[in-house]
Design a protein around this nucleic acid. Structure first.
Lengths: 219, 219
DNA sequence: CGGAGCCTTGAACGGTTTCAAAAGTAGTGG
DNA sequence: CCACTACTTTTGAAACCGTTCAAGGCTCCG
């Protein structure tokens, strides 16, 4: 990977003062992670904050009876592990590396120090959590009063449209919207008939994002 | 209502420095709200932060097809409206007064100023959002891989056990866990048979909280 | 004591899951 | 480069959980 392709934390927080950017860049020690590995597991205590320089990470939780639920996705330029860190509690989900990735890490103390000393950093973190909470609660409402097909449409927009670098499996889509692979497959077939998407083998291409959004009743 | 019974913001944020407590107490202008009224509606832009001095407020969202979903409950000593305020976006749900209440209000600018100047205040806000996000995502996972009866048990603990001052209707319980009143009623009958709860008319008393928690697979 | 709102119950319907088996796809090593 | 293997996708049919609808009874409060 060329140096130029590496995303510095500074580029993720461009609104921050230079002082913070320098600190972040300096503190971050990028490491490579193989697809399928984990940055952390549910129940562990957070030791710091992760930055995705390159690649893709999924935050998911496996229930006692083995069912997985995908909460959030983190691509290039996003940080993760922040919820448990600022909540000062164990992780409630595991961070699985979905594609070979370059991940930076900043020690908890340094993050706390930054949050304490730099109110702009704190403000952005607050904003981030607020938006994630909004999304989670909207999904929660949707999980019970939307049809599965509407949720699949939503998942296609969030996963396939927003993170096209990953070839999402029917199972991952199912895990994101709380259903099963057979149901996703049947729904995708419908969407293909209606011209919303095209499927070639395992590949899913979105032909009409707008139609999907309307179908999903996205606000 | 006697003055002594009124909860000052200071009592909600006892961990904050005196300086902040004074500011909050001074800025807050408590008003009474009647049961059934609203503090704000979904889609509106936040103008400040609300503090519950006394009473009960529910945060819920009504979908296009008229189904309501209860997200969070705010009793005495809690603030609400913080998510949209720090997220700098419109409310994603409405705040309905569930019992006659005394509610304080602090202007947005004052809150922003406090967040900016007092990192401890910011830290507590971050922590609050982090915990709310955790809860929302765990409920999201539960909404698809838990039986309805398990979610009803969860709702009983969160609503009836934690906020006993309100006589929760079967409909409100249903709205919280994403089901319907008939299903809640049938489930409550089961729980009564098993000795988890007792029902007298519309009243629900929890006899064995531990058993409910186990049943709900609460972590 | 009257009426609005809440609770209860039954029966039918329907969307999803489940299970299983077969076909397809990609990646691996000979 | 092909064959092998593991995983993913696909499909069908049956079972099930929960919803829906509707009617009747109960409670509480004015």
């Amino acid at each position: 990977m060329k140096e130029a392709e590496i995303q510095k934390p500074s580029q993720m927080w461009t609104f921050l003062p230079d002082s913070v950017i320098c600190v972040l860049d300096e503190l971050t020690q990028p490491k490579t992670y193989k697809k399928g590995s984990y940055l952390y597991m549910a129940e562990e205590r957070p030791k710091g904050l992760f930055f995705v320089y390159h690649g893709l990470v999924g935050l998911s939780r496996t229930s006692e009876d083995g069912k997985e639920h995908l909460f959030r996705i983190f691509g290039k330029g996003l940080c993760l592990g922040h919820r448990a860190l600022v909540g000062e509690e164990p992780y409630h989900a595991s961070a699985k590396v979905l594609e070979d990735s370059m991940i930076g890490f900043v020690e908890a103390d340094a993050v706390y120090k930054l949050l304490h000393e730099n109110s702009e950093f704190a403000r952005q973190m607050l904003k981030k959590l607020a938006k994630e909470l909004r999304m989670a609660e909207l999904r929660l409402a949707g999980s019970t009063n939307k049809q599965v097909s509407e949720r699949v449409a939503e998942a296609l927009i969030y996963l396939v449209a927003d993170f096209p670098q990953h070839r999402w499996t029917r199972n991952e889509i199912a895990d994101y919207c709380g259903t099963t692979a057979p149901t996703v497959i049947r729904t995708l077939a419908q969407f293909e008939d209606q011209g919303f998407i095209a499927q070639q083998g395992r590949e899913i291409r979105i032909l009409n994002r707008r139609a999907l959004e309307d179908f999903a009743h996205l606000t």
